[in-house]
Amino acid sequence: MLRYTLSRLPTAVLTCLVASLGIFWLVQLLPGSPVAMVLGEQATPEAVAALEAEAGLDRPLVVQYFDWIGGLLTGDLGVSYVSRVPIGDLIGPAVGATLELALASLLLTILMGFALGITGVVARRRPAAVAYRLFSALGFGVPEYVVGVMLVFVFAVTLRVLPAGGRTPILEDPGAGFQQLLLPAIALSVHSAVVVGRFLETALNQQLDEEYLDTARAKGASRRRVLWRHALPNALPSVVTVIGLRIGHLLGGVVVIETIFAWPGLGTVLVNAVSARDYLLVQDLVLISVVVFIAVQVASDLAHAALDPRVRLEV
């Protein structure tokens, strides 16, 4: 397992490095100057040039890149060009907010995904199967943005049983925090849950058609035992990989969901940073997202390898 883990690291590090170059280059392509936004519409070109020099934006791009990467490696995220606040201070609270939302969504994705996948297998010709198909079709086809708006309209505006947005840290006030977390977490997880459910259903059906389960049935194993003790463990490895991929989707989805629910997380900070052309903040946030995504992929690969020894042997 250690050999397998080590074999995954060089690729992950290389991917992060290439991503950092790509992010830096793409951000430079964005039109507009961050200091222009800081100084406002009335600023003279001379004032803009002076502030660009002060912020180091007049240096060669190669120097700026290595300065940025060097800072990141030593834990210095830099200072926001626009708000002039250390980026660490700016995104610290936002990381907590996004982490809270992402974890809640991941938990819901797994719970709903497993419930859907197993329902799809066991309720093939029952009304529950019809409900499952309908929910799957809607969950897959309706964008998260629309799901979010619909949830707000039904539960916050019409029934007024849950808040329409905002955030109270769940550790600070569990009651209020849970209420505010519920709708965005559901909105963010419905699509992923349906995808996980479909994969699980397919994987389970494949396992249930395997000959070793005919043997188990012939030996008198109950339907429940066949499903839970034999089919499900063997279906899990591929589903774990899908869940890993869906985490990437969740990280992308928070950008939209956070703005709908006024959730003060990284997505909100990123949207504001892009519109303000806060280059350094945008670079940091996107690279952090990439690193988190790659870390999750490595973790899901390791989980896959732990569940399926054949994967480890391929190395």
Binding site: P31, G32, A36, Q42
Partner: peptide, 11 residues
């Protein structure tokens, strides 16, 4: 984009 408009204003 807002940043481009700001530059257009300044220049």
């Amino acid at each position: 984009e807002p940043a481009v408009i700001t530059e257009r204003f300044q220049n």
